[in-house]
């Protein structure tokens, strides 16, 4: 349910931008990592609720899910971490460090062409 808090933050930021530009926001893309992953359907729902009665009403959300990467301590291979194996695909070692997980980012907003 923290989608609600995330959606409110997204809408607040978009409204600030919309105010500067003077156009209606219609689409936005956010990105998240794996440990802070967001569910696409739940996020769109939370955004629909948070955007009611604002110029963001009806906005469509796209989420870019960024894989988690790890770096092997034994062979220095950097790889996409798979939670089911939890080992380096090159040498099989389970000694590795995570590359920091991607943060929650509001990447891009699209505005309608006509002025509001």
């Amino acid at each position: 349910m923290h989608e609600t808090a995330v959606a409110q933050s997204i809408i607040e930021t978009i409204l600030v931008e919309a105010d500067k530009i003077g156009k209606k926001p219609i689409w936005a893309r956010i990105s998240c990592g794996q440990f802070n992953a967001l569910n696409d359907e739940a996020m769109q729902f939370a955004l629909d609720v948070a955007s009611q009665d604002t110029p963001c009403k009806g906005i469509v959300l796209e989420i870019r899910h960024i894989p988690l990467r790890a770096s092997c301590k034994r062979c220095q291979n950097e790889f996409e971490f798979d939670i089911y194996s939890g080992t380096c695909p090159a040498c099989g070692s389970s000694e590795f460090d995570f590359v920091p997980d991607a943060p929650l980012l509001l990447e891009e907003i699209e505005f309608e062409d006509e002025d509001t």
Binding site: A5, V6, S9, I10, T13, E17, I21, K23, I30, P103, L104, L105, L106, E107, E108, I109, E110, F111, D113
Partner: peptide, 11 residues
């Protein structure tokens, strides 16, 4: 029109 932001959501 698209605007690129790359701003942290939980800023």
């Amino acid at each position: 029109m698209k605007v690129s932001l790359n701003k942290r959501i939980l800023n």
